[in-house]
């Protein structure tokens, strides 16, 4: 019997996981491929809605820009010590981040 092709293939799952910085195990890729396919096969029905000439809605407040004076509100500032308090790794009062470029990248 021929297997039904899933709308979200394992390759698609690996691709979105990479975009979203999620690491998946091979067994998880299969599981999510099935589950996400089920979801997208259901939501695909939005394709049948006639939306030509319909504007997009991305927020519902009807307000546009909200301005405030460009003044520092000291009531809403954290001291350096407080800001760093929750970090697992700090150095000389800075957050430590992972290196973005390896040495090879820097050389080339």
């Amino acid at each position: 019997m021929k297997k039904k092709k899933r709308s979200i293939s394992p390759k698609d799952v690996r691709h979105v996981a990479k975009l979203a910085l999620l690491k998946l195990k091979e067994g998880e890729v299969k599981k999510f491929s099935k589950q996400l396919s089920d979801v997208f096969e259901y939501v695909n029905q939005i394709g049948e809605i006639r939306t030509s000439n319909v504007p997009e809605t991305t927020q519902v407040t009807n307000s546009t820009n909200r301005f405030r004076e460009d003044k520092i509100d000291k009531g809403h500032m954290l001291l350096q010590e407080e800001a760093l308090k929750e970090s697992k790794q700090t150095y000389n009062g800075y957050f430590v981040v992972k290196a973005i470029f390896g040495e090879d990248d820097a050389a080339s």
Binding site: I46, G47, I49, T51, V54, P55, E56, T57, T58
Partner: peptide, 9 residues
């Protein structure tokens, strides 16, 4: 984008 339009409806 299609969902954003349908949201208007």
């Amino acid at each position: 984008k299609q969902a954003a339009k349908a949201r208007t409806l």
